[in-house]
Nucleic acid binder design. Structure first.
Lengths: 178, 178
DNA sequence: CGAGACATGTAAATAGTTACATGATTCA
DNA sequence: TGAATCATGTAACTATTTACATGTCTCG
């Protein structure tokens, strides 16, 4: 059986629901602390997409108020689980990276040493900040015996390390030349 | 002086025009061979954005037909050059990465060894294909004595190497466990 | 002469961000 | 009591992709 095309946001949400029912708010806060470093989502996408998924029969809402505080959690339906598995389990290539910092460094490199150095510093600082954030999450990642998230976290850390080291090295080169 | 907020597409275009007047078609083919690995642009963005930049006084169009083949090249105006320098030369953080392949690996890691392995293979293959593409460009990158583009190319190569090695290593780990 | 590169654009749809609005609960 | 967190959503805007339409030139 074929499933509807899933938007990236739909994939994030289905993936999150894969480990149990969640509210829109939950999804937002979990993505902010996990997938955010390679794919972010905002409320403006999450809530409407949850409704679309419910309409499409991939997720089922349940009203689940906490005291007087309203709350709607969504659970994967069987079809939703199938769609999630169909996505993760079959090849499909929407591989496209985006990184505005690299874009800036690219053009800054043409604009003279000082501008280049400045852009490198900014990029390095960004990657170091992300590293800090990712390292903080480590303790939360390998909870529940699931190894997956911590693998990907380790990947993220390696990537940002590579990037920040590259910036530092290049910076040294540029500064030596001055 | 402050300049209009530049969209990412505007930044790509201004950056490209920084090294001389170009047509929309030129910009598309150059980005496809250079910035594409961290920021792509389509005709549907490029042509309208060129018009907006012209209206805003940052770029100036010149009709430049080649035989009976029409062609409009755009050149940076003084204001356009200022805007480009203002962007590259001042800090500003829209650092946000996007990589749907990592997203898939992240959720695949929760879906069992075989699915995880499959996603890792796909991601690895993508990074290796990109590596091939990037290595092909090397000869074109350091033309004209400008070192910048080849620096960033080297960065891209390093990044994809890291990513594809990580996938290979993780894949071996997973396969050993099976 | 046909294929592929050169060249420009638009329309429609989809995707995503930002700012806003609202209200409850918890904890210091 | 006030701040932070929990909770949900919409409207307006901005960004981006995709598919389409059109025509020229060059090289084999």
């Amino acid at each position: 059986m074929r499933y509807m095309e899933l938007s990236a946001t739909a994939k994030v949400i289905l993936g999150m629901l894969g480990s149990g029912p969640k509210s829109g708010y939950d999804i937002k806060s979990i993505t902010d602390r996990s997938t955010r470093f390679f794919w972010a989502a905002s409320y403006g996408q999450i809530y409407p997409e949850l409704k679309r998924l419910a309409e499409a029969g991939l997720a089922e809402p349940t009203s689940d108020p906490q005291g007087g505080r309203q709350r709607t959690t969504y659970a994967l339906t069987a079809a939703g689980r199938d769609a999630l598995e169909a996505w993760t389990g079959s090849p499909g290539i929407h591989h496209e990276l985006r990184d505005e910092g690299s874009l800036k460094v690219f053009f800054a490199s043409l604009a003279g040493e000082e501008v280049f150095a400045q852009a490198l510093r900014e990029k390095r600082d960004f990657h170091q900040a992300e590293l800090g954030r990712l390292r903080e999450i480590i303790p939360f990642a390998d909870q529940a015996g699931r190894k997956g998230p911590s693998d990907v976290l380790e990947y993220g850390i390696g990537l940002h390390e590579f990037a920040s080291n590259w910036c530092s090295d290049k910076l040294k080169e540029v500064e030596r030349e001055t």
